[in-house]
Structure formats: structure tokens, C-alpha cells
Design a protein around this nucleic acid. Sequence first.
RNA 1: GGCCCCGUCGUCUAGUGGACCAGGACGCAGCCCUCUCAAGGCUGAGAUCGCGGGUUCGAAUCCCGCCGGGGCUACCA
Length: 451
Amino acid sequence: MAERPVRVRMAPSPTGPIHVGSARTALFNVLFARRQSGKFILRIDDTDLERSTAADEQFIYDGLDWLGLHWDEGPLRQSERLDLYREHATRLIKAGHAYRCYCTPAELAAEREAAQREKRPYKYSRRCLTPDAPSDRTDFVVRFKVPEGVKIEFDDLIRGPMSFDGDLIGDPVLIKTDGFPTYNFASPIDDALLEISHVIRGEEHLSNTPTQLMIVDALGYDRPEATAHIPLILAPDRTKLSKRRHPALITQFREWGYLPEAMVNYLALLGWNPGTEQEIFTMEELERLFDLARVQQSGAIFDREKLDWINATWIRSLPAAGLAERLRPFLPELTAEQLGRAVPALQERMRTLADGRELLAYLWTEPERPPLNEEEKERLAAAVAVLRTVDWDPEAIERSLETLRESHGWSRNQLFKPIRQAVTGGNSPPIHHTLALLPQTEALARMERAL
RNA sequence: GGCCCCGUCGUCUAGUGGACCAGGACGCAGCCCUCUCAAGGCUGAGAUCGCGGGUUCGAAUCCCGCCGGGGCUACCA
């Protein structure tokens, strides 16, 4: 058997914000392609002109770009290839594999309801293939004529050998009244023309596969070498992830302060694992280790907690300068210099970059005046005296506070607690960092106010 | 209704007939460290492997039935 070059594609439809599920599908495609030295192609399946929007298309590009999932070919828009699909439909009609259907949506709905009532599985009646066909109409769709008695068999890399009975499939619509192809028609044509070797997509398409393969067969094209239907990503309540109820737009995670490295890492682990106990992976490692054979068969719940942990782990592993750079959009009021000084205080305390904002909230929010007892006030006053003349950097502050503490025999807690309370009103990074990030005058003012 | 897919701790999962009275990770609890918060270290709770029958000396792993969840059944993808 001749080895075909590996070519995979991601074919999202721009009919809503791009979802974590789509992002993971893209990831698996990319990882598979890289591992096999193949090509990754981006195709925009915008054949539903009612629902497709330019904004949603842009979300796809932004999302893939943010995650670092770059495509080798494309993007290709199906809406710009309408002639191609019509030609294929004509070919099928001439060959007797397809026909025009003039039935109205209302008539079809009636057929369906009748079948429902009689508890009979519904299939299109093929009325337009009989002498009873309506003759006075102009609007039509093109339907594929499902051959009698066919069995459609194929191997799925994740599900194993699959077999479907063609007699259970009603003649699918190929071209809609508006002249646009349906997904089940355009997709297999493009997959064949683009010479896609492996169709890696979501599980919701498993049942569409036999229809698409029949069409490929009728057209005389080669079937893809294999399909791989990856399991769905589920919401915490076990229902399918819904765009409305679960805000899962992929670029939203960027705004929430997740690193693309962490996102990729987490998405890879949702439905796949290398069989070892490793949890943190770089993209390079994933490209080396990823294997469709180890992809899970059951759906997985999207777990924000685990994502947070992976993100925090990635944040801690970043070099200080790199982290400062990533933090910039989240703390626009800090100068680059201030950002650099904030990093040591923040790095091991953030789960997301947005947490950095909360941890530094005391910088621009004055705390309530804390209720301190006399002893605490005495220590605070001593600290003020010492800090008034110190060089305002973490090391010098730490040194002078330590000296003060030792000379009085105070514990760290005894001295630092009132300072922290006066300056932040709550928890904060180590006291010398907490102080140094604030202007000296402001820090002293807050402490004096608490006396 | 029909066809198809899936079913191991709360969650992600390891596991392909014996080393599994089921291992790891997140989360959770406790302890240690400690200037608070984190981080880190240690310990622990948590799964009769959806249920019921088989097969076998032996089953999470094989077979059958059932139940539960999901997908498709659209002139959405």
C-alpha cells in the first residue's frame, strides 16, 4: 500500500465563537500532522450563510494564532467555491446518483410527523422520484440517491471498525434551495480534493461519516486513509458544552489570564495522555509524544480547577522577565520597571495573570484603618521611624526591619502583622516586597494613619 | 422511535485475564515549613471499576442482557 503524504485539516464553521472543543480538535490535528511531518490545513466551512459571520471567522484566526496553532495551507473558504460543488452535483445527477427534489419544507415536516405518529423510522419518501412528483415549482434541492442495500464500512482510529446500513439513511440534501452545498456534501468533496489523508474531527460527526463516504464513492474519489472521531468536551453538569451557558470562547481565556502554553497543555490532556505520570508538557514534547491511539473514547468534563493548576505551574516556570512582559496588559498602570519589581512578589501566588491585579490591588486601594492594640501601635511606630530613612528597596527594607525586630526581641509576626494590616488591610506578599512596591511616602502615610 | 458512540475516586485519567482488596494528577482535609497569603514537603479521606448474568482456577479487563449519558436522524455544521 502506497504511503500517502499526511495532510489533515480543521474545518470550523464561523457560526459562533470558537469553542474550547474546536481548539482541541485543531490541537490534535496539528500534533498529529507534526508528528508525521504532514501538513495542517485550515478550511472555513461557511456554507450556512444565515449564521456565518465575519466576526466569528476572525475569532477562529485569533484563537488559533494565540494558541500557536499555525496552518500550513489556507484558509480556504467554502463560500468561495460554490461553483465547484454545483459542478459535482450536476455530475452526480447525470450519473443517476442524485436528483432534484421539489418538496417544500412544510411537506417534508408533514412526512416526518406522520412517520413519528406511526412510530416508523423516518426516511425521505422519494416522492420526487415518482410520477406523483410536484411539477409546477421552481425551488428545488439536490438530493443524493442512497444506493439500495449498501453497507458502509470504515475504520476509525479511535472507535475501531465501524459499519452502517445504508438502507437506514434517507436521501440527504446535497445542494440547498439557496444554491449552497450542505456540510455533508461540501466537506467530503473538499477533503478529497485537498487530498486529506486523515479526517480528525469531533465525535458529533461520526454518524455523518457513512453519508459522506457514500458521496465520495459515488464521485469516484479516494476515501481518506482514516478517520478519527475524538470525544466531546462536556460542561461540569455533564451536558454538552454550550456557547451560551458556558462562556468558552477560546480567546476569552487570554483575557482571563491564562497562558497559551497552559491552555495547550490542558487541552492536550483532556482526552489524551501519554501513559506516563507526566502532567506538564511543552508543545515540542506534545508533538513528539502525541498518538491518536491513546486518545480517550469517552467525553471529558472541562475542569477549570485543573486548568488553573496547570496555568499556575506554567507561570512559576517562566523567567522573570518573560512573566513581566506577559503581565503588562493586566497591569497597565505599572511602568516596566515597577512590573519587573512586582514579579518576585507575584510569581508563586498567581493562578492566572489576572490574579496579579488582585494581589496588587492594595497599591491603588487604601485599606480601612485597622483596629490595633497598644502594643501593635508601639511596634508600628518603631517601624515607621526606621523606615523613614531607609533606602526604598526590598533588601534594605528587609535588613532594617530585621535589625529593629532583633533589638526589641519581637517575632516576625509581632512586627509584620500590624504593618501589613496598616498598609494592605489583608494578606500580601512578604512584607519587604509589599512595602517596596508602594511609594515610600504612601507606605509611611498609611502606617501613620493607623497609629 | 431508529441507528451509532460512550460508562474506573467529585473531575482528568493509568489499567488490554493473575504483580489491582485498583496507581497518578487536580480538588478536598490534616500536619510540617513559615511574617500573612502562596509555593514546597509529608499524611489522609475518596472508586463494591454503571448494574445483572455468564466464561475462567482467576475479570476493571472476554461474552450476553439491562440501565444511564451523549451524538446523528435538518434545505446547522
